[in-house]
């Protein structure tokens, strides 16, 4: 379980998150919905301890990670996988090297085991035959699948997705959303995904938190979004895509 408790974050004088509290339960898909530039990606980075809040706590499985040093955070981070918005694949490495890199870096596994796990992820991502290609030669949807496969490499309990369908065509978007839903169904994986596309939220999210002007204005079951009378939520439900 991942929990943000009264988290406040400022960049210089600009208030990004104002006493935000949020809980992500195991084996649930939680969406964080909000307009661009509101601090959604920041929430994911806080959960991983990539940035530290000015005040408040971030708890992963009940352990407060905010006072932890970088080296102490590494085992915590391996409990989660992350798919960055731009995928953040290593562009000078082949697809199989992208998968194997962190296994070699962090786990003392025999070479056969590394190869087995890499092949498993290549099959999962449906990229057989592309093992020795560089990421730049793949389509946007394929790159996203590589990023998801890489996020699964340590068998995490939760995967964090930063705008998983941004920049993808509708068919690829649907495939990625189905993949996230399948991961939960078949592998009991929880997921947090931040997005500004409300259709994605209704497609797969069990629970949704809406972030607006640095505050969480809604945090409940996705189906209950329609019951909200908050003007911002009413406006996004009618416009579907947030471009505020």
């Amino acid at each position: 379980m991942i929990e943000l408790r009264n988290v406040t974050l400022k960049y210089g004088e600009k208030l990004i998150l104002d006493k935000v509290s949020l809980t992500v339960r195991n084996n649930t898909i939680k969406a964080v919905l909000g307009p661009s530039g509101v601090g959604k990606s920041t929430i994911i980075k806080l959960m991983l301890g990539l940035i530290k809040p000015n005040s408040g706590q971030v708890l992963v499985d009940g352990v407060d990670i905010t006072p932890m040093k970088e080296a102490e955070l590494y085992p915590i981070r391996r409990k989660m996988g992350i798919v960055f918005q731009g995928n953040a694949l290593f562009d000078s490495m082949t697809i199989s090297q992208n998968f194997s890199f962190f296994l070699r870096e962090n786990l003392r596994l025999p070479e056969e085991e590394i190869e087995r796990r890499v092949m498993e992820q290549i099959r999962f991502a449906g990229l057989e035959g592309y093992e020795e290609q560089l990421p730049e030669s793949l389509s946007g949807g394929m790159r996203k699948r590589v990023a998801i496969g890489r996020a699964l490499i340590f068998n995490p309990g939760t995967i964090l997705f930063d705008e998983p369908t941004a920049g993808l065509d509708p068919v690829s978007s649907k495939k990625i959303l189905n993949l996230i839903a399948d991961l939960r169904k078949n592998s009991n994986l929880g997921a947090v995904f931040v997005t500004h596309i409300i259709d994605d939220v209704f497609a797969i999210a069990d629970e949704t938190a809406v972030l607006y002007q640095g505050k969480i204005i809604f945090d409940d079951l996705t189906g209950k979004l329609h019951e909200s009378d908050h003007p911002f939520i009413c406006s996004i439900l009618s416009d579907k895509i947030l471009e505020l």
């Binding site: 970088e70 962090n106 890489r150």
Partner: peptide, 18 residues
């Protein structure tokens, strides 16, 4: 810019050492 350094940190590799 492409978040590869954040990816290193997120997956448990010290980017300064690497």
């Amino acid at each position: 810019i492409s978040e590869q350094i954040d990816a290193l940190r997120a997956f448990g590799t010290d980017p300064i050492a690497k």
